Amino acid sequence: MIGVSDSAAAAAPEPGPADVRRRGRISGAPSAEWSFPADPGAVRTARTMVRQVLDDWGLNGAADVAVLLVSELVTNSLRYASGPIGVRMVLLGAGALLIEVSDPLPDPPRTRTAAPDDEGGRGLQLVAHSSRRWGTRQGKSGKTVWFELAVAG
Rank of each mutant, 00 (worst) to 15 (best):
V90I: 09
N76R: 04
K140Y: 03
L91R: 15
P13I: 03
N76D: 01
A32S: 11
T45A: 12
V90W: 01
T48I: 11
R110E: 04
P13K: 02
G86M: 05
K140G: 12
N60M: 12
L68M: 15
S35H: 02
D19I: 04
M49A: 10
G83H: 02
E148S: 01
A63Y: 04
P106Y: 00
A46R: 04
D55A: 13
A10R: 02
A38P: 06
S7Q: 06
A10G: 08
S141T: 14
G41S: 13
R22W: 01
A12D: 06
L97V: 10
V67F: 11
D107R: 09
G41R: 15
R112Q: 12
V53F: 14
G153H: 07
D55K: 10
S82R: 10
V101E: 00
L54E: 05
D55N: 09
V4F: 01
R51T: 12
E14R: 02
I2R: 05
W134H: 15
L59K: 03
R88M: 09
A63M: 09
G24I: 00
P106Q: 02
L92M: 13
P17N: 08
R22F: 01
L78Q: 04
W146G: 09
R21N: 03
F36N: 07
A62M: 10
P108R: 09
G16N: 08
G95H: 00
D55C: 06
L97C: 10
R110I: 13
G121S: 03
P116T: 04
D103W: 01
Q52D: 13
G120H: 13
G93I: 02
A32L: 14
D118P: 07
K140C: 04
V20A: 10
E72Q: 14
S141I: 04
A8V: 12
R47M: 08
R21V: 10
V4H: 00
